[in-house]
Design a protein around this nucleic acid. Sequence first.
RNA 1: GGUCCUGUGGCCGAGUGGCUAGGCAGAGCUCUGCAAAAGCUCCUACAGCGGUUCGAAUCCGCUCGGGACCUCCA
Length: 500
Amino acid sequence: MQSLYIYNSLTRQKEKFVPLVPGYVGMYVCGPTVSGESHLGHARPYITFDVVYRYLQHAGYKVRYVRNITDAGHFEEEGRDATDKIAEKAQLEKLEPMELVQKYTNLFHWTMEQFNTLPPSIEPTATGHIIEQIAMIEEIIKAGYAYEVNGSVYFDVKKYASNYEYGKLSGRVIDELLTTTRELEGQEEKRDRADFALWKAAAPEHIMRWKSPWGVGYPGWHIECSAMATKYLGGQFDIHGGGMDLLFPHHESEIAQSTICNHQAPVCYWMHNNMITINGRKMGKSYNNVIKLTELFSGQHPLLTKAFHPMTIRFFILQTHYSSTLDFSNEALLAAEKGLKRLMDAVESFYKIDPILVGAKEIGADPNLEAKVNGWLAQLPVLMNDDFSTARVLATIFELVPVLNSIKDGITPAGALSASIILQTQATLRLWLETILGLRLVQAADQEKLQGVMELLIDIRKEAKGRRDFITSDKIRDGLAALGIQLKDEKGGGMSWTHD
RNA sequence: GGUCCUGUGGCCGAGUGGCUAGGCAGAGCUCUGCAAAAGCUCCUACAGCGGUUCGAAUCCGCUCGGGACCUCCA
């Protein structure tokens, strides 16, 4: 297998992927904050890194994939209102904080299943790692890179920057950060405006609170990822993923914290997915333009004309390279839906072809076509190794679609391809579409009864057509169409069907 | 204001200096009781202006447009 190249945000170039320990990969991806429902934008990193996870496994690596659940809550804005986001919402909904967190965690898991993403190896929660976070903060203080004020602890960015590179990942210039004139409230405690909180003292009414060496409070914004990544992946690990919007300050600060505690740069390859936009603007809370995933699945949103299947969304996302912005629109989703259906229909009927039954020989009759097919199949790993180019992988698979359909329809003679190439193509398509890209083909296992019913109806329709009783045959076809099942006459009198 | 990304045909989107991306939509043809599906064919674009080069969507510069981050954000 050729080498995998990954675009590393840290070095701003594609680099050959070499794991720290041969055969093993440690990967950390920033997970959801479970204080509310996930929207389309959140789906992108989880699907992107699901494919990365799948591909690394396919490449033979034993991967430990860690994706956290942020359930301790981030702060609306430093000091403006020391209310934990989760605590605030909980009061509105009259729920216990942990009850709220559980509700949205469950919903998140359900959504991930809909998308057919594999569960991570470890899914640690922030609240379950308060001890580790406190220990890490203590270490940073001991090392002299943090200071305590009134029960809160802040990271000393200026000091860190004098010995290490702060801003390397995000391209920030430390002096600019230090001299920015913009005023934020509640900064009095900090020695410098670029400093960030490691631990915050909790106001009396604050619901989520833990005891610490500095008094009762709650962990700061960035420390959970450093603590959990270190615990499960070690002081240095291979891949860290997340959205581009986390580059600064979140990941930059994560590097700083971990570097102090572990005495090395924590991550070898930083990967960042780009944003999903809507009308050219980032989809995000702050812009008030989000479409929740449940709205997408149900079609209940003013911008949507119908419900969209999770696989359509997965396909839609994979049709673009993860590092490009992806513009959402109802129209774009409709196009993705149609394309996916055409692809899957072609592939599914091709899977049913038995090379022996169709009379394929050991040597194909059309060497040209064979060469083309082989060429496309061989191209797939090459494209994927080029920084996970799922868009080009899909485009290449689409090249095969006319060939597959034409074999199915008997337009291309059965023996054009050799039996072994037919088998190999079937296996390769399954591998890429299902195992690597995670596009689930068959809807459900309850298809058996439906299959039987359909065979019966097809029999009746064939008989009717035989007597040129088109009233009956059309009734069957139209009736099924009304139920969302499309019956298609094929050459030679056969019939096949698909449904939405 | 600072840092960075980006501008591709009706729409979405790949594109490593030279060879057709692909999808959706549209047009024609074939097949067909009709239909649907499918196959074949057509639609060949790279914001603008300069420059480098035998040759640029692809490199450089400028102009114009769009966006992201700098604050919670996938």
